[in-house]
Design a protein around this nucleic acid. Structure first.
Lengths: 95, 95
DNA sequence: ACGCCGCACTTCGTTTTTACAAGCATGTTC
DNA sequence: GAACATGCTTGTAAAAACGAAGTGCGGCGT
């Protein structure tokens, strides 16, 4: 399996890259992510579990039953790929 | 819709980025792409149509009933995002 | 102390996407 | 002119995503 395919295996699922992108703004809670992205709540829960398992993000326990999701070092390393993709997307829209 | 979401709208579908990656090696025919990627033939046909519609690639008629698929300028601009993603994927595998 | 609220998910039924297998049209080879 | 290669299309089943509703749990107000 190529390195690209390996990356897409983790990030190719729907919402995955958008979740990481959102977390580049800093740690956020479940509800915040949900509202910011507009993703179905069950999908978000699944993606967060997968991304945690892949070592891209981690859960930080806050008070009582709330936690924050934050990117790990490996997750933060996605800043460049994401920026490159965003630039590409921007070049197709301006008009 | 954010620029990132716009990019993923085109490239987020399964096989899409892998097709573009494969074409970074130069124009190729349908069968070559199919064998190189191992993608289901109906999916490949659909993605190629979508990517052409999005201006990422174009069909070059060759002899008789064969044609080659080649990246447009917009498609070639995906080299950097793809390389960045590949690098990220490689950083997670080495061991 | 009891009910109510917000948060973080689950569960369920439906729709959309993907996969696998087979078939078809056109042109080329022998 | 029969067999074969190329580039798809069609049909059906499995998997993934969606949308709405429900669950568990701790805090808060009264």
């Amino acid at each position: 399996m190529s390195d690209l395919a390996a990356a897409l295996d983790i990030l190719g699922a729907r919402w995955a890259l958008l979740v990481v992108d959102q977390l580049l703004d800093g740690p956020q809670r479940y509800g915040d992510l949900q509202r910011a992205l507009g993703a179905p709540t069950n999908m978000l829960a699944i993606r967060l579990r997968e991304l945690e398992a892949a070592g891209v993000l981690s859960r930080l326990p806050l008070k009582h039953n709330t936690r924050a999701y934050a990117l790990t070092e490996r997750g933060l390393a996605l800043r460049e790929p994401i920026l490159a993709l965003r630039r590409w997307g921007a070049e197709g829209a301006p008009p």
